[in-house]
Simulated scan of single mutants.
Amino acid sequence: MLKQYCQEKGKIVDHALAAFVPSENVYPPKIFEAMRYSLFAGGKRLRPILLMAAADSIGGKGSDYLNVACGLEMIHTYSLIHDDLPAMDDDDYRRGKLTSHKVFGEGMAILAGDGLLTAAFTVMLAQPGVQADVLIKVIGEISNAAGALGMIGGQVIDLSSEGEKIDIDTLSYMHQAKTGALFQAAVRAGAQLAGGAEWQIASLTEYAKQYGLAFQITDDILDVTGTQEKIGKPVGSDVKNHKATYVTLYSLGKAQDMANQAVTNALQALKQFGQEADVLRELVRALLTRDN
C-alpha cells in the first residue's frame, strides 16, 4: 500500500510542480533551468506526502492542498542546493546526479535556491479552498520551520560544530531544527488545512517529532552502512566533515536501538487513530529498512 500511495502522490506533486515553476522557455531561462534541475532530480517528495497523509488521517483529502505541499518541496529543495555548496557541505553529488553548483556554478546555484524559496510562498498563498486565517497560520508555521528558529538555525549549529565535540542535547536540537522542523510543519499543515481537532493535531505533532528523529538517526546510520549507488552521494561525508552524529556520539548498535525506539514512539502517538492513519504508520516503519 505504501509504495502505491507514494507513487500516486509523487506523480500528482510532480505534475503540480511542473506547472508552478516556469520552464526554461521563460526569460531569463538559466535560472528556471537551474531551479527545475534540482527540483526534478529524483526526490522522494516525503514532505508533500507527509502533508497529504496527515490530512487523509483525519478524514480530509490530502491532494486538495497541493499548493502548500509543493511549497514545502520547493523549500526543501532550496535547502539541499545550499547545503551542497562548497561553503556548506561541499558535496558533488545529490541523488546520483551532479549537484547544482557543479552544473551551473556557485552563483547560479545560490540564485536557484533563492528562487525556489521565494516562489514557494507565492505558490502556497495561492492555495484554493482554505480559509484565509487558517492558510496564514499554516504558512507562518512553515516560515518559522524554514527560518533561523528552524532549518537555518540547525544549519548554523551544524556549520559551527564541525570538528568540535558537542553533546547529545546540542546534536538533538540541531537535527530537530535542521531536519525535524520541516517534517513537523508538513504534518501539522496537513492536519490544520483539513480541519483537524486539537487532539488530532497534538498527536500528529508528536508523531512528526518522532518521525524526524528516526529519519535523522537512520540517515546517520546510512552514512556509515550505505552505498553511494543507493544513497546517491558519497558515503562517509559526516566523517570527512568531522561532524558529530548519533553513530559517532554513541555507536552503530546504540543508534539502531534509538531509531527503533523513535519509531515505536511515533506509532504510539497514532494509537487513537484508525486505519485512516495507516499510511503514516507505514511511512515511519519504512525508515528502519531504508537504504537511501
Rank of each mutant, 00 (worst) to 15 (best):
C6I: 14
Q7A: 14
E8G: 02
G10L: 08
K11P: 01
K11A: 15
D14R: 02
L17F: 08
A18Y: 07
A18G: 05
A19H: 12
V21C: 04
V21M: 07
N25D: 14
Y27W: 11
K30D: 05
K30I: 10
M35V: 04
R36V: 02
L39C: 05
G43Y: 07
K44G: 09
M52I: 03
A53F: 06
A53W: 08
A55C: 03
S57P: 01
G59I: 07
N67R: 06
V68G: 00
A69V: 07
T77Q: 02
Y78E: 06
S79K: 04
I81M: 15
H82T: 10
D84T: 08
L85N: 08
P86W: 12
A87H: 09
D89F: 09
D91V: 10
D92N: 15
R95A: 08
T99P: 02
V103N: 02
G105P: 01
G105R: 09
E106R: 11
G107Q: 09
A109D: 02
G113S: 03
D114S: 01
G115T: 01
G115C: 00
G115R: 02
F121N: 00
F121C: 00
F121Q: 00
T122N: 04
V130K: 04
V130F: 03
Q131P: 01
E141A: 14
S143G: 10
L149N: 12
M151V: 09
S160K: 15
S160M: 13
S160C: 10
S160A: 13
S161R: 11
E162F: 02
G163W: 05
I168K: 14
D169S: 15
A177T: 07
G180F: 03
L182K: 12
Q184H: 11
Q184F: 05
A185L: 08
R188P: 01
Q192K: 15
A194F: 09
S203T: 03
Y207N: 04
A208Q: 11
A214V: 07
I221C: 12
I221L: 12
V224N: 04
V224A: 02
T225D: 13
T225N: 10
T227Y: 01
Q228T: 15
G232T: 06
V235Q: 02
G236T: 11
G236L: 10
V239D: 11
K240R: 14
N241E: 10
H242Q: 14
V247K: 00
V247R: 00
L249D: 00
L249E: 00
Y250T: 10
S251W: 07
G253W: 01
K254V: 13
A255V: 01
D257Y: 05
M258S: 07
V263C: 03
T264S: 14
Q272M: 09
Q272N: 14
F273R: 05
G274D: 15
Q275C: 11
D278N: 15
V279E: 06
R281S: 12
E282L: 12
L283G: 04
R285F: 05
A286D: 12
L287T: 04
N292A: 13
